[in-house]
Design a protein around this nucleic acid. Sequence first.
DNA 1: CGCAATCCGTAGCCATTGCTACATTTTAGA
DNA 2: TCTAAAATGTAGCAATGGCTACGGATTGCG
Lengths: 137, 137
Amino acid sequence: MEEKTKARSIPFARTRDHHANETAEDYVEAVADIIAKSGECRVLELARHFNVSHVTVSRIVKRLQNERLLHSQPYRPIELTPKGATLAKRVRERHQVVLDFLIAIGVDKRNAEIDSEGIEHHVGLKTLAAMKRFLKG
Amino acid sequence: MEEKTKARSIPFARTRDHHANETAEDYVEAVADIIAKSGECRVLELARHFNVSHVTVSRIVKRLQNERLLHSQPYRPIELTPKGATLAKRVRERHQVVLDFLIAIGVDKRNAEIDSEGIEHHVGLKTLAAMKRFLKG
DNA sequence: CGCAATCCGTAGCCATTGCTACATTTTAGA
DNA sequence: TCTAAAATGTAGCAATGGCTACGGATTGCG
Ligand SMILES: [Mn+2]
Ligand SMILES: [Mn+2]
Ligand SMILES: [Mn+2]
Ligand SMILES: [Mn+2]
């Protein structure tokens, strides 16, 4: 999305970018959470977490491993690389801000949890900062 | 018989639903806007709008036609069905609320336009109502 | 009128993320 | 120990949305 790009088309290109990062963000966040909760993260645990088949998880884990966010050996638990752990921390904090923010403006917890799961990936630095200001003020 | 879905997996399933509707929502909104602005909506105009190739637009238009949201004949302008027009109206209003809301909490216009393009599709009725309350209050 | 530019459709490629069915490995219990 | 269950991997299919290349239709202009 460079020079000749019409201004009105930029938001759509950015949204496509957000979606391209979404799986990675949700997976590292999930791996961090599951390890924090139960000590290790298994393919089947991720499958239950996202309510998808273990096959889907297995393939995505392989891709994220190529991107150096995770590592795992066959039939072994999944772990985060330093890069993955850094991303997980950032994503988890952003998710928490979005969730707290929705609750702060009066959304019930259940709907805040649902909507924040999708919204988080589209919250840029400026919007995140605005939400933090709102929560502090 | 229904399987008992784990509570923590529900937000992800809902997010997948939101994404499944996203293209339809953005396209009917774009068609409505383009017709309002220039009288008719052409494949190439949509391609410029989203910054994708005309081939991508053409295939998606065909799918949305099967879903009775649009109709078009080869080499003719694209029009909204009543169903499509109804959806466009709802989507456009929701988008406007999200955009106004982001600006109201202090996000600059440019970033509000970018983030709202993705966020809109994840804003459920409860969250939308909360945003409207905030804007009125 | 006629032709060239423009618009649009089709063919066919890729990546991603769903799935089921089946194969293989690991683990746990009798 | 040793075998059955559980966990994981592999094969292969579908839908969606990106793309380029190319061909046909429409339109505008000289
Ligand atoms: Mn998410
Ligand atoms: Mn999340
Ligand atoms: Mn999204
Ligand atoms: Mn949008």
